[in-house]
């Protein structure tokens, strides 16, 4: 009776795990095929064993393992915390600076002299004769100013601006 062995392809199929019932039956009965497949499987087992052992050894010796793992988890959190910290420090500082610019405390004397000066400028502008033609003794200082008797449209505007400045 002719006894045919499994083909190389079938043996490889068996090793890969693609086993048919006919293959399994043949392996159970054929010593040659069984030993050939067993030799291949043994080599692959030793290969796998060495691979797993080598990998485990490398992983165990890896100094970066713990560090990398920690950084992977904490690095994003650390970045956010740093950003929040920077924001917490910089925001009040910038607000303080802005506050200083927005609300300066005015000096009362300086405000009065400013008002007088503004009123004087208004008057100078509204006069028919340019101020450059007038003697410098016409200039007044804060506290000695008197409004002119005749009123013109420009002077009315000047009065208005004077009152608005004073109200501030």
């Amino acid at each position: 009776m002719k006894h045919e062995h499994l083909s190389v392809w079938d043996r490889e199929e068996y090793v890969i795990g693609q086993r048919t019932p006919a293959m399994v039956q043949h392996i159970a009965q054929c010593e040659d095929c069984r030993s050939a497949i067993a030799a291949t499987q043994e080599d692959l087992e030793f290969f796998r064993d060495s691979a797993i052992q080598w990998s485990a050894d490398c992983l165990e010796r890896s100094p970066r393992s713990a560090q990398v793992r920690r950084s992977a988890v904490f690095l994003p959190a650390f970045r956010w915390a740093l950003a929040a910290l920077l924001l917490a420090v910089l925001l009040p500082l910038s607000l303080m600076r802005t506050g200083r610019h927005v609300a300066p405390s005015p000096q009362p004397d300086a405000a009065m002299s400013d008002d007088a000066l503004l009123q004087q400028v208004d008057e100078e502008v509204s006069e028919e004769v340019p101020s450059s033609m007038e003697p410098l003794t016409h200039l007044v200082s804060a506290g000695t100013y008197r409004a002119p008797a005749d009123s013109r449209p420009f002077e009315r505007t000047a009065e208005g601006s004077h009152s608005s400045v004073q109200s501030n």
């Binding site: 064993d49 060495s50 691979a51 052992q53 080598w54």
Partner: peptide
């Protein structure tokens, strides 16, 4: 070196 890691 890899082959030497194999347990037998």
């Amino acid at each position: 070196e890899i082959a030497d890691r194999m347990r037998a």
